[in-house]
Design a protein around this nucleic acid. Structure first.
Length: 586
RNA sequence: GCUCCCGUAGUUCAACGGAUAGAACAAGGGUUUCCUAAACCUUAGAUGUAGGUUCGAUUCCUGCCGGGAGCGCCA
């Protein structure tokens, strides 16, 4: 049992012994101390019960503390407004460290009830190369998937490619007016992007072109042979380009169920919704309207315009007969429930689509798929340009993801050449690639997903401060010790004794690993894990400076070796959950 | 106009309702006969505003100010 649980159980026992009635056991908390000056753990028990009992919290805390009976392993004190503080003795910390070190899971417990979770992320548009903005969904989604899997969920990673939407009408339109076959061979993604831009620009200037593009899409969706042929080539070429970037990023999917995968079921789905009265025709389109329940303010199908609440339906078939994003999303809902038996679906998608998802989830409920299931829009903020303004997602002129990665790798190579211990040229190149790519990923993961962050390449690849290289370096340091030993060490059955402050602080940090991993899923926040790992790395670096390992002797040496081993395992495991790979040397 | 998100050191970011609000970068001062100095130690510096709930508010609620986003056939 974890220390916090032990302490909490004991406190509840003491309260029973004191005949204190606790209305809700959830009120009584034991947590890691916010401020380490006061101890290792803290409880709010006296403060939440103080008023109810008519007692001075600080005094009551003292009374509970005296009855704890944990003196042999833990010092109990009171302070402040009535905090009950616990400071573990070094011996107890040694036990904690040993327990974690001997466990296979490093203290990460499995969830009580495993769920089938579909994670819908990345989802780039085919026929357009990924730009820097795609890093958010892709990396957050990959990381959340890994964490969920780690704690025991059955995770299905699905790349819901945008391969059936309006942009295909545009690419097809431009393709027919002159595709550059040579360019297509040389760099397919760039040629497709050129075509898209051509159509995009033309339709901005000419409403007629816009109509023609729409018509091309309708033809494709109705099975036109020529358009289908063009489409197939586009998808094929694009997928190849995407695979390459995903490999580089260390991202993978179980399925690539793009929009087109659902195209046969869209018609019947809309007909069924019409038949069931969930949808109806309006202005030539088929729409789902509000069901009239709830206040208009909270109704995703109502919108206020000049003081009047008007209908704001979800369009599931356009007046030209084509289907859209909403239709395919509804189809995926059915598919994921029926074929995959999903308990939860997490959509890792830009916050601007919040309105779309509140409508989607509402219809999901009305279709009867809501019960016992959880649908989550894991939204995230905008990446800003250096001018502080949002990068536009459809502008076409933002940095492409691949270029950003290349730049990051170049910057990393400079530092590698300057500082690395690695002699071999090829290994240096691999190292620069690893550091460069991981720096970009870590920048993403260390930010709160909802906050907009500034896209600053220099800073992203800067190799100082709260960065990936800092973390990687602490891992490498911990491993270098074992290389020095050259296998001449047997840690099994080794004694573990702690005396130095830095040792205890490191153990305290490491012991929080399991809780941190779980906390990521409370609100879908990989940045909590990223921040935690930085703290572990900091604690390790301090320990490393303050406590010689190889030069110490006996139990001390053994203990420190075990701490190095445990640290490297936690760092490697935690970084892996962030989809960050570690080098052995750097 | 309505709805949603965000306002924290000079800057970039943290903080399950807890104590004296943490880091990093930039700035100042130190540390290398010693396991990777890509490191460590150290000094300064911040919760937009007015209320409310609470034993306790950066966190929850309301108003205001500032920034961003969305608002019928794009995704």
């Amino acid at each position: 049992m974890m220390i916090v649980d032990q302490l909490r159980e004991r406190i509840l026992e003491v309260l029973r012994e004191l005949d204190v009635e606790v209305p809700n056991e959830g009120m009584v908390q034991v947590t890691g101390a916010r401020d380490l000056r006061f101890g290792d753990f803290q409880s709010n028990v006296a403060m939440v019960l103080g008023k109810r009992l008519g007692r001075v919290p600080l005094e009551f805390a003292g009374e509970v503390g005296e009855k704890m009976g944990v003196e042999d392993w833990c010092e109990v004190t009171t302070a402040g407004a009535g905090f009950l503080n616990f400071t573990l003795k070094p011996k107890a910390w040694a036990e904690v460290a040993r327990g974690q070190w001997e466990s296979d899971d490093l203290g990460v417990q499995q969830v009580g009830s495993a769920k089938t979770v579909v994670v819908d992320f990345s989802a780039p548009n085919v026929a357009k190369p990924m730009h820097v903005g795609h890093i958010r969904s892709t990396i957050i989604g990959e990381s959340l998937s890994r964490v969920a899997r780690k704690v025991g969920h059955r995770v299905i990673k699905d790349n819901h490619l945008g391969d059936w939407g309006t942009q295909f009408g545009m690419v097809t339109w431009a393709w027919k007016r002159g595709v550059d076959e040579e360019g297509l061979e040389k760099d397919p993604l760039q040629e497709l992007l050129r075509l898209y831009r051509e159509a995009s620009n033309a339709s901005k200037e000419d409403e007629g072109v816009k109509e023609e593009c729409r018509a091309e899409l309708v033809k494709l969706q109705q099975g036109d042979e020529e358009n289908t042929g063009i489409w197939e080539r586009c998808v094929e070429l694009s997928k190849r380009g995407l695979e390459r970037i995903y490999d580089r990023l260390g991202v993978g999917f179980d399925h690539w169920m793009g929009e087109s995968a659902y195209h046969d079921v869209l018609g019947p789905l809309v007909d069924r919704l019409l038949g069931e009265g969930l949808a109806r025709e309006s202005e030539g389109a088929v729409c789902v309207f509000s069901n009239g329940e709830g206040k208009p303010k909270n109704d995703p199908f109502k919108i206020n315009r000049d003081g009047e609440w008007e209908d704001f339906p979800m369009i599931i078939r356009k007046k030209d007969g084509a289907f859209n994003y909403a239709t395919t999303d509804l189809a995926t809902v059915e598919y994921r429930v029926r074929e995959w038996e999903a308990d939860e679906v997490w959509y890792v998608v830009d916050f601007r689509q919040g309105g779309h998802f509140s409508q989607l989830f509402d219809i999901t409920e009305r279709m009867g798929y809501g019960k016992g299931r959880k649908w989550v829009h894991v939204s995230f903020g905008t990446i800003l340009g250096k001018d502080g303004k949002p990068l536009k997602t459809r502008a076409g002129d933002l940095p492409q993801l691949e270029d950003v990665l290349d730049d990051a790798v170049k910057a990393a190579a400079v530092v590698v050449n300057e500082k690395s211990f690695v002699e071999d040229v090829e290994e240096r190149e691999r190292l620069a690639e690893l550091i460069g790519v991981n720096s970009v990923k870590f920048t993403e993961l260390s930010h709160h997903r909802m906050s907009d962050y500034l896209f600053d390449l220099e800073k992203m690849v800067s190799l100082e401060g709260d960065t990936a290289p800092y973390l990687l370096n602490s891992y490498v340091r911990s491993r270098s010790i074992f290389r020095k030993l050259d296998g001449n060490v047997d840690l099994d059955g080794g004694q573990l004794e702690l005396s130095e402050k830095a040792e205890i602080h490191l153990v305290r940090m490491l012991s929080g690993y399991g809780a941190q991993v779980h906390q990521v899923l409370d609100d879908f926040r990989p940045n909590l894990l990223a921040t935690y790992l930085l703290e572990v790395a900091r604690a390790f670096h301090s320990f490393y400076e303050a406590c010689p390992v190889l030069k110490s002797e006996g139990v001390t040496r053994m203990s420190r070796l075990i701490l190095c081993d445990l640290t490297s395992r936690v760092l490697k495991d935690g970084l892996n959950l962030l989809s960050i790979e570690v080098p052995e040397r750097m």
